[in-house]
């Protein structure tokens, strides 16, 4: 089956007919709902928050964000603002009288909010579209960079974003994650049902500062299958030398610091553990 992303630009693909078909399909409703709940569990919001929904479509996720904690939305009800490039999709959302505010915008053009606006952001099944540039003057890399740059700035310190998306291939997965890291995010990839045709990829993003300290491992600790990405370049290796950043190196440095009378974090089995550096 061909990917819709390869057939038409999103605003043309999601026309009135397709938007209605999409929104009324019980199969799609079910999948989008379960992915939204998954994303919410990764955001771990504890109280009503201001949330951005990127590529909100007809508001399938938004309806869940507006629900109370008792109805299954952690920390809810949240207040959300959604934008989408398809006016037909937004039209369906209006008909459904969703509670969030909606506006028409292209994520590839940026995120027009003042710095630190949102507690969190979600995006379900949308950002793979950024990899298909609509015109010759735009490149996927440029669009991804404007999007993640804008998203990063619009989140408050310690804020988080979770973007579920459908990468076409590994290269696209890497291009998207790399663009997020370049924008300043701490990033991790979570894959559910990996290797099956129902595989779901979640890009988990954190902004430094606040109560999270920007440590992606704070989000993904104890979660199976999350690959933490690291923005720092691999240090050039010199053969035979103790590698900077290695467990051995860290333990030696800690020892040095301790001898100088500094307080150092206790070593554990995680100390210096190799993260899977993706790029």
């Amino acid at each position: 089956m061909s990917r819709p992303e390869d057939t038409l630009p999103p605003d043309l693909f999601y026309n009135d007919t397709e938007s209605r078909k999409y929104t009324t399909s019980s199969r799609i409703q079910k999948i989008q709902s379960s992915m939204t709940h998954r994303a919410l569990s990764l955001l771990s919001l504890r109280s009503p928050s201001l949330i951005l929904d990127v590529g909100c479509g007809s508001g399938l996720s938004g309806e869940i964000l507006s629900q109370t904690a008792d109805e299954g939305t952690p920390g809810g009800p949240h207040i959300w603002i959604g934008f989408d490039i398809s006016s037909s999709m937004l039209g369906v959302a209006l008909e459904k009288e969703v509670e969030g505010d909606l506006f028409l915008a292209d994520a590839g053009q940026g995120v027009p909010f003042r710095p630190g606006t949102f507690d969190a952001a979600i995006s379900i099944s949308a950002i793979q579209w950024l990899c298909n540039a609509e015109s010759s003057e735009e490149s996927p890399a440029g669009r991804l960079s404007r999007f993640f740059g804008g998203l990063y700035a619009s989140l408050r310190r310690g804020g988080r974003a979770v973007c579920q998306f459908y990468p076409k291939n590994d290269e696209q997965k890497k291009m998207v994650s790399q663009a997020a890291v370049k924008a300043g995010f701490g990033a991790g990839l979570l894959e559910d049902d990996m290797g099956t045709k129902n595989a779901k990829v979640y890009l988990v993003l954190t902004v430094g500062g606040g109560d999270l300290d920007g440590d992606i491992t704070g989000v993904v600790r104890g979660m199976d299958g999350v690959d933490v990405m690291d923005a720092r370049r691999k240090a050039a290796r010199k053969r035979g030398e103790e590698q900077k950043g290695s467990k051995q190196w860290i333990l030696r440095k800690k020892d040095q610091m301790e001898k100088k009378g500094r307080v150092v974090k206790a070593s554990s089995k995680y100390t210096g553990r190799k993260r899977r550096v993706q790029f």
């Binding site: 506006f103 028409l104 053009q109």
Partner: peptide, 13 residues
């Protein structure tokens, strides 16, 4: 209808 249009023409992006 309460929906603002923030789509920019290419040259303003």
């Amino acid at each position: 209808e309460g929906v603002a249009n923030f789509l920019l023409p290419g040259h303003l992006v």
